[in-house]
């Protein structure tokens, strides 16, 4: 009888089994391990914790990680919307293949992407030799790797919105005297904005924690090209578990807020669709 208070009655079987298994699995595999971060952090003194997470080398890594992830997510929004637009609105040879290729960054192991990009952008590489500035082993290289990793998010968020978009709204805007650019800014952009923002946030969140594709192209110089996940790795290799855990706790809290933000955005997107 107590069960009914928190669960609505259903004639379908398997509630206890499926929820029980799910809860056990999630608790053992995710909650218990993640709790270790906070348990271990809590055993540090506040002064120690603050000193660890505000050390200049750590702060430099936050700045780099945030800056590069932000830049990459911005590039992804611009080109992601462009690619989604081109794939939905225009027809050209090879479109289906290109549409499928967009998901390559999700399918390709990050380490493979990392060594490929480093080879391309190294000073003697296919692309690097034509550039007058250094790309590999600089923040620009990091941004390129993060752009690669985040590319599919914006495209895949915006594409379905454009597909379902009622083109009569554009025609109405054109009949009312707006030119194509005005129609784009005033009719189409507001419609795809929530999806584009969600894609941006997803790409940003992924870029913030990315490790595999970045370590090869970054050069990993402390204070200059050392991203936060790499710093955690370095501390672990030196058996500085407390230091690694403290930085991880900061990143976890940031990730958690990003997750809340993304859920909020998705709720906004759904509401937009529900009333239109």
């Amino acid at each position: 009888m107590a069960k009914k208070k928190w669960k609505k009655h259903s004639i379908l079987p398997g509630f206890g089994l499926s929820l029980g298994f799910t809860t056990l699995y999630v608790s053992l595999l995710v909650l218990l391990p993640l709790a270790m971060i906070f348990v271990n952090t809590a055993s540090m003194s506040w002064a120690d914790f603050r000193a660890t997470v505000t050390e200049p080398r750590v702060v430099a890594s936050y700045q780099l990680s945030f800056g590069a992830a932000f830049a990459a997510a911005c590039i992804n929004v611009i080109f992601g919307v462009l690619i989604a637009w081109v794939l939905v609105r225009y027809s050209f040879p090879g479109k289906r293949v290109i549409d499928g290729l967009v998901d390559l960054p999700f399918a390709l192991p990050t380490a493979v992407a990392g060594i490929a990009l480093t080879t391309l952008y190294a000073e003697t590489g296919w692309i690097g030799q034509f550039l007058s500035f250094k790309v590999a082993f600089t923040p620009i290289g990091i941004t390129i790797a993060l752009t690669f990793i985040g590319l599919p998010f914006v495209v895949r968020m915006v594409q379905p919105v454009l597909q379902n978009f009622d083109q009569e709204m554009e025609e109405a805007s054109a009949i009312l005297g707006a030119n194509r650019f005005q129609t784009f800014i005033k009719v189409i952009v507001p419609e795809i904005l929530p999806a584009a923002l969600t894609g941006f946030a997803l790409a940003f969140a992924r870029a913030l924690g990315e490790y595999g594709s970045v370590v090869f192209i970054a050069g990993n110089m402390p204070m200059k090209t050392e991203i936060t996940p790499l710093l955690i790795m370095t501390k672990l290799e030196q058996y500085d578990y407390a230091g690694a855990t403290a930085i991880a706790a900061v990143m976890l809290v940031i990730s958690f807020f990003l997750l809340l933000f993304i859920n909020g955005l998705q709720w906004w997107t759904n509401r937009k669709f529900a009333h239109s």
Binding site: L12, V30, P33, L34, I37, G209, Y211, P229, L259
Partner: peptide
Amino acid sequence: KFDFKGKSILITIIDLPFAISPVIAGLVF
């Protein structure tokens, strides 16, 4: 298939590994 309290928390927890840096995923173990 069922309505129960805490459902949205469970969905958020299932999302968590996507939001976490892989390095942290290794660190917890």
